[in-house]
Design a protein around this nucleic acid. Structure first.
Lengths: 193, 193, 193, 193
DNA sequence: ATGTAAGCGAGACGGTACGTCACGTCTTCAC
DNA sequence: GTGAAGACGTGACGTACCGTCTCGCTTACAT
């Protein structure tokens, strides 16, 4: 019977607070104050700060779009990289993802939320890239999909988040070449359609 | 003239506390208590918890060993991967690295400490792998060293820390093949020695 | 058109809660829960906790019995003292009377309820003692009835409730003697009947 | 090592809050706010609200003065009654005494504080009245001192605090007569001095 | 007989206070 | 003057009630 619009409003505030202050400095009192809500309304919904944040993350409307068929694996990968780069540098998500990643090491609920609501959707968006490449004959049908989906994100995350380095177009260009090789890509076999 | 041996003792305690409890639950009071030291002795040395941790990290004796020449790039990479995997699952370092990475986004001092004392040494240890491969003719002399050094760590970090997945020998085996392709490796040109 | 039987059931619960937990730890939520009633049913009847308690007290069936004619003022006083002592050490009333007394200082409704439903009935029960004593010639007809009715309760309340001391038979015996003097009692003039 | 002047300032605030709001509505947060002090400073000194109040009561500088020798028991009693009446109608003490009395039923620490710091001093002030009366021959040497000390306070407390009635000079006059009888007072045996 | 009012239980709501913990600052005292 | 000890103000934690309020559901009277 919890008022849904109130829940949504609170979640919005949680995400804003997380983005502005990070996980540690986001407080229940602060969220309640900013949402103009009693603390009881928070604890009626979630049993702890960790719970609340995990739930808020679940509802983070990730700015994920489908990767359009560019006609080649190379083109598709370029688009996929751009998506990840934008994702990580996003105002809201980018600022909290490292915090959440760290916190998830201790908090299974948060870990689950992150996997299901952030990583899985991202992977789902990238799957068609592999399908199309296999159909084109650019990738072998038995390509290691797990590894392929990892490699679309890992190097960019590493550079941007762990090493705190700029993501330049040159980097992405070189990365694209190497990633094609990583995947064992071949030229498209023949005209499809 | 702060007593150096006291500073060292405190740093030891900080590292232990971080490893045991993580960044967030490490407290100044706790460190002072465990080091049998007044809090003033902490704040005389560092201006905040973040500062103190950054400094402690600088003095983290990273368990990095030289990568011995295995005779082939493949062998060297396998050893390099093992090193990274051990590093991340290390009792002390592995438990706090995600915390520190997140914190570093807001704390330049910590960012600098991480880069200089963790990432740079790691890269330095991996450089000879590239040198040897070039000498063997397995890698072109103009290989993108930055990218190569990234790719030794990024996929493993992604799997282990971000996706919270087991690092299996099978994964490392497949990863090795793909990484060789990623780097554009060729068979060694001629018999060495 | 509030359901009367519901009101009565709630009042019962209020009295029980008061007796078990005292005024401060009696909560509206607790009463509602125990009476299996919505909180609205409470606030529909009373505007606050204080109001509710005041009303409950009004309906407290005080265990007051008539003081039988013992044939002498001394005997009647002894019975009256016993009655007060039992009253104050009563399971239900005794535990809350100090609370209510304190609360009544700020709450006129409660004050009125206490006076009308507790003190006045008690005085009414003691009046015949005076009447009989006057008839017997033990007390002058113009005895200060107000003061006399006070003195039947005041010393015992003081000892038991304010000073938190045991009420012993010895105390009551001495008190009886002194009280007879206090009232200016004389031996009975003659045989009545 | 607690700062004594801070403790004193807090105690002052506690007493003021008690007098203004009563026990129940006196809050730790409120005291901290008014004393411009952190809550931790409260809990460093006392383990709970009950503790704090008990201690504050201990330090209540009771406006007790010695009862001067009026030359007769009657005069001394009149003065003693006035003292009690002023005590109970005192701005600070009178407003909280009923609260504290009620609370003390559940709180032994508070009970002890009340006995030692309020009731015992009051009794000590009244003792000389008895001594002098015995010396004058107005009271027998074996008078029941306990009961005598009770009767100096009980009727007035009952009227003023329990029955919430005005204390009038007429009442006190009548009470004085009856109290002399209660005590079994006789005329002074002989000229003193 | 059916509409409409009201009582009802349930419990969400914005608040305030509880007692605990950690932060970073400041003060005291011993050496 | 360094250091141990720890008090200080601040503010977050998660819990418990307060008194208000909004829901559907039931009951009962008036049409």
């Amino acid at each position: 019977m919890l008022r849904v619009e109130l829940t949504d409003a609170i979640v919005e505030v949680v995400i804003d607070e997380l983005a502005e202050k990070g996980y540690a400095r986001t407080s229940m009192d602060g969220v309640a104050r900013r949402a103009e809500v009693g603390k009881s309304s928070l604890y009626r919904r979630w049993s702890s700060k960790q719970d609340m944040v995990a739930d808020a993350v679940s509802q983070l409307s990730v700015p994920l779009v489908d990767i359009p068929d560019s006609g080649s694996l190379r083109g598709d990968i370029e688009r996929a990289f751009e998506m990840v780069a934008q994702w990580l540098s996003d105002e809201r998500l980018g600022r909290i993802l490292p915090d959440l990643t760290a916190e998830a090491k201790r908090n299974p609920a948060l870990a689950k939320a992150l996997t299901e609501h952030l990583e899985n959707p991202r992977r789902a968006k990238a799957e068609p890239v592999l399908d199309r490449a296999i159909a084109r004959g650019e990738l072998p049908p038995d390509v290691d999909r797990e590894l392929a989906l990892d490699i679309f994100a890992a190097p960019i995350y590493w550079r941007y988040t762990v090493r705190r380095t700029e993501i330049t177009p040159e980097f992405l260009a070189t990365l694209t070449d190497s990633t094609l090789a990583f995947l064992g890509a071949r030229p498209a076999k023949k005209r499809r359609r």
